[in-house]
Write a protein that binds this DNA or RNA. Structure first.
Lengths: 357, 357
DNA sequence: CATGAAATGAGTTGCGTACCTCAAAACACC
DNA sequence: GGTGTTTTGAGGTACGCAACTCATTTCATG
């Protein structure tokens, strides 16, 4: 009836006795320090495994004395997503402080490979762990690998560098996110047929390109009645996005769906609203005529648009979860603890009006 | 550029010096022990606040010595949701063990108020914290309040007892979940009009009743073209659900949407499949004729149904997150740490084929 | 001012680990 | 058998706090 899941109460001393060695030797094995014969190592590890011994994290943490230093390397400039990350770290302040963790924010030009690589190289040795919003480029990859070799724990955030030897990626699968957006647009458009527009920041950004890829995949295979128009590159800028989209909406009156891949949401919404206003004065209206609008991320703006019904769904990747997951993963890596992969996995949230967080 | 979020490195000794008292007094204040004059208490608390001092959790944990005991009180009988909770706790075994946390599972008849209340009363004093899947009933409420008064930390799981003095609720807002289901059915049905069916376990269950309430709310206010049929009570049983639904589908050929509130999914899917087969042989087919099917929870079964396209969306409440959140909340409560409410909040996940976790 | 109660100080011990030093033992090699 | 090297043992200190004891001071009250 009452099954105990974690009964351990052994200490290093018990393991030492079990293995027939001294405490010092167990310590050497536990921390991969040199000066222990291979078969002695095995004896100790066996004893540890046999008793499924877990070092007491509190004791380990206390004994090491020094605080740990982590840093988030993020894009400079006003970026709502990054501001949210910072805000969530602020909410964790007491939690961090109670564990003697120092977390800093470092702003850098993430979109300039050379600058980013240089920034990263400069941090070597200063931190126990880094969470990096990086772009996938050979020089960045090299910088990350150097950090890893120097013993720094490295986690990529939001945008991965899979070719590097980073320890972990905290973020979503962007192809799946694009597929999800495609399925939503297709299903919410319903029986209507027509054209679908895509507004992205730039197709050069890895995450945007992947989302578009996934989106087109679904549209092509499952919604043959909908034809996807060429991607508009709004550069995540409101003005530019609005202008491009307004022109497109004018040219194609039969646009029934819209996927906004990145930022520039304000401009996209403006263009859509203007179109809706025009149609209202000219007679046509109603939900049947409205353009299905799917975008990314829950911000103050997208929240408002969802509530107003302008936007139909937002694909979200919970920045709070990402911030906390990055810290937890770095901490687990630094301590040599296993990572709870299920916990740290970032899910693709579909947010509609009624499940707004 | 590099803003430090958590610089603390003070100790109790520093606080004692700051406040002009001894270590013992600080300790008394920190643990609400008697024997300190009110103004002395204030002086100490001021010093703590002024330096935003946080006791080192590792040191505190180490010093207290005793391991903590938590228990999950859950329904007996074969219940996939509860089995998942148990599985996720198993995945945390190393994490728990490293923190000297003992977590047990206690099965009880959750649907019998008297039995549940008696079980809870019997646990008093044995555990530092309890996570309880409870139903809202006066005797259960009283039992929970007694536990709280005795110093046990109590968290309700999945199903809340808001009238009790439980410390925290780990679960979703079921009315919002119902609303979300309603919005999904309505939007996915598209331009078609017709009838919508609801299959629930029982309207007597608080969570099911709340979901139905939210569902009807949205249907009534936003989808006037859809009329909701009376709720079928399938008692979470496959056979019964299938039988009831098959009869209903036969009687109303114009059913375009279906909301399955609880379990019995296998039966519901069977009834829908049979209907689809009939229509295929008789000519009509295609997505336009299919019944939109929205249900709850991601299990092996619903996952398969989503992939096959039989089911259109599942409202999910991530049992892994719930299990981990319950443990974290109990631990934070026991330690007197603040709870990261943003982190522990259970979100209403919309799961469709392309964002299956 | 005497008395007893309340408030406070001073000190100790122990939690389980990290990290260090120094000496002793085992071993390899010529 | 002697040399030098590697491996191991023994022991200590420190980390920051909880929890306790016991002595001392402060205070209110008669």
């Amino acid at each position: 009836m009452a099954e105990t899941l974690a009964p351990t109460a052994l200490t290093l001393k018990d393991i030492a006795r079990e293995a027939g060695v001294s405490l010092a030797t167990v310590d050497r094995v536990l921390h991969n320090r040199p000066g222990v014969r291979p078969d002695t190592v095995r004896r100790v590890k066996d004893a540890i495994a046999r008793n499924s011994f877990q070092p007491h994290v509190a004791a380990a943490e206390l004994a090491r004395g020094r605080a740990r230093r982590f840093a988030f390397v993020m894009p400079s400039g006003p970026n709502p997503f990054m501001q949210q990350i910072e805000a969530y770290l602020g909410e964790m302040a007491a939690w961090l402080s109670a564990r003697r963790l120092n977390v800093e924010m470092i702003a850098t030009d993430v979109f300039e490979p050379a600058a980013l690589a240089a920034s990263l190289e400069a941090l070597s040795g200063d931190y126990d762990g880094l969470a990096v919003v990086a772009l996938d480029h050979p020089s960045v990859r090299a910088a990350i690998n150097d950090l890893v070799d120097a013993g720094t724990k490295v986690v990529t955030l939001v945008s991965d560098v899979p070719s590097s030897r980073r320890h972990h990626y905290v973020g979503i699968d962007n192809i799946a996110a694009g597929r999800t957006a495609g399925a939503l647009v297709g299903r919410l458009v319903g029986q209507r047929s027509g054209k679908v527009a895509i507004v992205a920041g730039s197709q050069g950004l890895r995450d945007h390109a992947e989302r578009i890829f996934g989106f087109n995949q679904v549209m092509g295979s499952e919604f043959p009645d909908l034809s996807v128009l060429p991607v508009l590159e709004g550069r995540d800028d409101d003005g530019r996005s609005e202008q491009l989209l307004a022109r497109l909406l004018g040219k194609h009156p039969d646009i029934v769906g819209l996927y906004n891949v990145g930022a520039g949401t304000q401009g996209v919404a403006k263009a859509l609203n203007d179109k809706a206003l025009n149609e209202k004065t000219s007679g046509a209206a109603g939900r049947d005529k409205q353009v299905v609008f799917v975008g990314h991320d829950v911000t103050a703006l997208t929240r408002r648009l969802l509530l107003q019904g302008v936007m139909d769904a937002a694909i979200s990747q919970n920045p709070g979860h990402e911030a906390r997951a990055a810290v937890r993963v770095l901490l687990a890596l630094a301590r040599g603890e296993p990572i709870l992969s299920e916990q740290e996995k970032i899910r693709i949230d579909i947010v509609m009006r009624d499940n707004l967080p």
